[in-house]
């Protein structure tokens, strides 16, 4: 592939913290903006999922039902449903439509707008049972909301039929806990990362292994996800590295370093609303932002008082949310100046 002629990226404008909130009583494990951008969902080891305003971080609803900590959450593409993965060995599907309907359209992001009558109503409509150990990650099929993929400490990747709650496929994917699962944009394949040091690609329809992208015994693969166009995968390993890989050829194209990642499975994100950035939390209590092409660190966001376990980028605004572990327990909102 020849070098493409590209317009120079817009000059970097720094992010600054605009909000902090503590919606949970224990560590935050995951933060996710909804695809429609009107909600921010956060999950915690206290077993709850909180729905926050993406502008004010005000708590709009709390989803209760899990018997143990929640490790991951995933939105359906239409933002109507939320899937949570928990240490109680189940996944739950939550119906968020009443919350969305309760947001006052006139108030923009919903801050200060009318709230649903009962923020603590039971919105769980489906419990997916079958994992034999902690469920560690979950991802909705982005092409449709009819299936969810999950990975857990039982070393399996499972695919669930959302409508009936049936486990459609149970793949003995790895020999160690599965740390992440992610669908490609058309829902045809899944990438999974594991503590066994491998990163594999699976056919979502047949459950067969299509490719092993990383096959090292050490270090563990802590996170993996597809790029927005589905051509690359971003892989994090417990050796302080983030790598961008062309999974068809198996070649590593970019490596991002400078952060600290030795212990926890930090969740990273692509930022595409302004320039093209890679965003990740770090065990030195900061959020790191790299230039996608140049691989240089553009900014280090300080403010958290414990490991930043998860970051999420707003789908349309230059906004980043981050969550911290037990000594911090905050969800912080970072806005790009401009």
């Amino acid at each position: 592939m020849s070098q493409q002629q590209q317009a120079p990226a817009p000059p970097y404008r720094p992010y600054r913290q605009v909000r902090a909130a503590t919606p949970h009583s224990r560590a935050v494990s995951c933060v996710r903006f909804s695809p429609c951008g009107r909600l921010l969902a956060t999950a915690s080891l206290d077993g709850t999922v909180a729905l926050l305003s993406p502008s004010s971080l005000a708590a709009i609803a709390t989803l209760r039902g899990h018997a143990d900590g929640v490790s991951d959450i995933s939105w359906s593409t239409d933002s109507f449903y939320l899937c949570s993965a928990s240490d109680d060995r189940t996944l739950r599907i939550w119906d968020v439509r009443p919350v969305l309907a309760g947001l006052n359209p006139g108030s923009g992001g919903g801050g200060g707008g009318a709230q649903p009558a009962d923020p603590n109503a039971d919105r769980c409509i489906r419990v997916l049972k079958g994992h034999t150990n902690f469920v560690f990650s979950a991802n909705f099929n982005p092409q449709t909301n009819s299936t969810v993929a999950s990975g857990g400490f039982d070393c399996t990747v499972r695919i669930w039929d959302v409508k009936s709650g049936r486990c459609v496929r149970a793949i003995d994917a790895h020999s160690e806990p599965v740390t992440s699962v992610h669908f490609i944009r058309d829902g045809s394949i899944i990438v999974s990362g594991s503590h066994d040091g491998t990163c594999k690609i699976w056919d979502a329809g047949t459950g067969s292994c299509l490719k092993t992208v990383i096959d090292e015994k050490k270090p563990a693969v802590s996170f993996s996800m597809f790029s927005p166009n589905g051509k690359f995968i971003l892989v994090a390993a417990l050796d302080d590295t983030l790598k961008l890989c062309n999974f068809a050829s198996g070649k590593f194209l970019k490596m991002y370093s400078g952060h600290v990642n030795r212990k926890y499975c930090l969740q990273s994100a692509f930022s595409v609303t302004n320039g093209k950035y890679i965003v990740s939390g770090s065990e030195d209590n900061c959020v790191y932002i790299w230039d996608l092409q140049g691989k240089n660190i553009l900014q280090k966001l300080e403010g958290h008082t414990d490991t930043v376990i998860s970051v999420s980028c707003h789908p349309t605004e230059n906004k980043i949310a981050s969550g911290g572990l037990d000594n911090d327990r905050t969800v912080r909102l970072w806005l790009q100046d401009g």
Partner: peptide, 16 residues
């Protein structure tokens, strides 16, 4: 050798 093409431009948004 694995990282020899690190300066290659990477397009993460264009769909096939």
């Amino acid at each position: 050798e694995q990282l020899v093409n690190e300066d290659e431009y990477v397009d993460i948004e264009t769909y096939d």
